[in-house]
């Protein structure tokens, strides 16, 4: 049952999860509520990063427009709230259906293209959405909207309480990771991985690759929409800036830092990205320069990201444990 603990990445990820589970306690003990905010943000963006990694890391579909889904999810909280509708089931239901619909429509078109064209077209769709919301004066245009009350789940969940919000997001993230684990090992996941490596062959094996990829894209976009739903609630604020392409780029950085080959990598990458940003911005006003440099070094030298590093350390360790292994 605990055989998976023999492998180093699994141990590290379990430790990270345990730490996240007790974090609110530590934060309370240290009376540093600010850190709970930071951790909540990390978890929310980790959901987005895990969803993006499904299409990039497993499916080989490099999208530069994923922040659009964060924006959609957030506006699905903000717009109803603007009309005094605070029902969380409505917010979440809207976030899921709107992001799924946007993914289906834009994916159906984008997936007709490949490679660089796919990157550009996903970017174009996201920017179209961005400018659409910039032009909507009713919803604050450029300035966005303040959300005065968080999603209300008929008293089942009080998201106004930061600790409750934190645990809700954490449970969602863990549930998502388990879902991803099942998905990539199931038939659907095998087909998606096959498409990344050799789409033509997958067609020659009898798979309608376009449909499988589109399904994968819709799943990914929908999950990212849920991340947006949480982000809107968390920040109590929405603006078109949330879907700016730079945020899509940041998500790509996060998954590359964490490693695209595993399921948990993006979580570590997101934490690393946001913690480093926080640390450096406290140190000096030139932090972005250092931040950029660190990112470049990580991408150039840290092939496979944190996950790749852990796997490498693990194989080295096992190799040392059994130096002579001739048979």
């Amino acid at each position: 049952m605990f055989k998976f603990l023999e492998n180093l990445p699994a141990r590290v990820y379990l430790a990270v999860t345990a730490l996240l589970a007790v974090a609110p306690l530590l934060v309370t003990l240290g009376s540093q509520p600010f850190y709970l905010d930071l951790l909540t943000r990390i978890l929310i963006l980790a959901i987005a990063a895990v969803s993006l990694n499904l299409i990039i890391g497993f499916g080989g579909m490099i999208s530069l427009g994923h922040a659009a889904f964060i924006g959609i999810g957030a506006y699905c909280v903000g717009i109803p709230a603007h009309y005094d509708i605070f029902n969380g089931f409505i917010h979440l239901g809207l976030a899921i259906s709107c992001s799924a619909a946007f993914a289906l429509i834009t994916g159906a078109i984008s997936l007709r293209t490949h490679g660089l064209y796919f990157i550009m077209i996903t970017l174009a769709f996201a920017q179209m959405l961005y400018f659409t919301f910039v032009s909507l004066d009713e919803y604050g245009a450029d300035d966005g909207l303040i959300i005065y009350q968080r999603s209300d789940f008929n008293g089942l969940l009080n998201l106004e309480n930061p600790t409750t919000l934190y645990y809700t997001v954490l449970v969602t993230l863990l549930g998502l990771l388990y879902l991803m684990h099942r998905l990539v090992h199931a038939r659907f996941g095998r087909v998606i991985i096959g498409c990344k490596h050799n789409e033509k062959r997958m067609q020659a094996l009898g798979f309608d690759t376009y449909r499988y990829k589109l399904t994968c894209y819709v799943i990914s976009g929908t999950i990212c929409g849920i991340a947006g739903f949480f982000l809107g609630n968390f920040t109590n604020f929405i603006s078109p800036e949330m879907m700016d392409w730079t945020h899509s780029g940041e998500l790509i950085f996060m998954i590359v830092i964490g490693g695209t080959a595993g399921i948990f990598g993006p979580v570590v990458g997101t934490a690393f990205f946001l913690l480093l940003e926080e640390m450096l911005s406290g140190l000096t006003q030139y932090w972005q320069l250092i931040f950029g440099l660190v990112l470049i070094l990580l991408v150039v030298f840290g092939k496979g990201g944190v996950h790749g590093l852990l796997v490498w350390a693990d194989t080295r360790q096992t190799a040392q444990a059994q130096p002579e292994n001739d048979s």
């Binding site: 099942r182 199931a186 038939r187 095998r190 087909v191 991985i193 050799n198 062959r201 094996l205």
Partner: peptide, 29 residues
């Protein structure tokens, strides 16, 4: 045109999987 990163068995499994109807199966490994 094999899938280089998969094992030989996994490559063949893709073909077997394709013969057994659709692969919109998200849960069972």
């Amino acid at each position: 045109s094999i899938i280089q990163s998969m094992t030989m068995l996994d490559n063949i499994l893709l073909a077997v999987q394709s013969l057994q109807g659709h692969s919109y199966k998200f849960w069972a490994p």
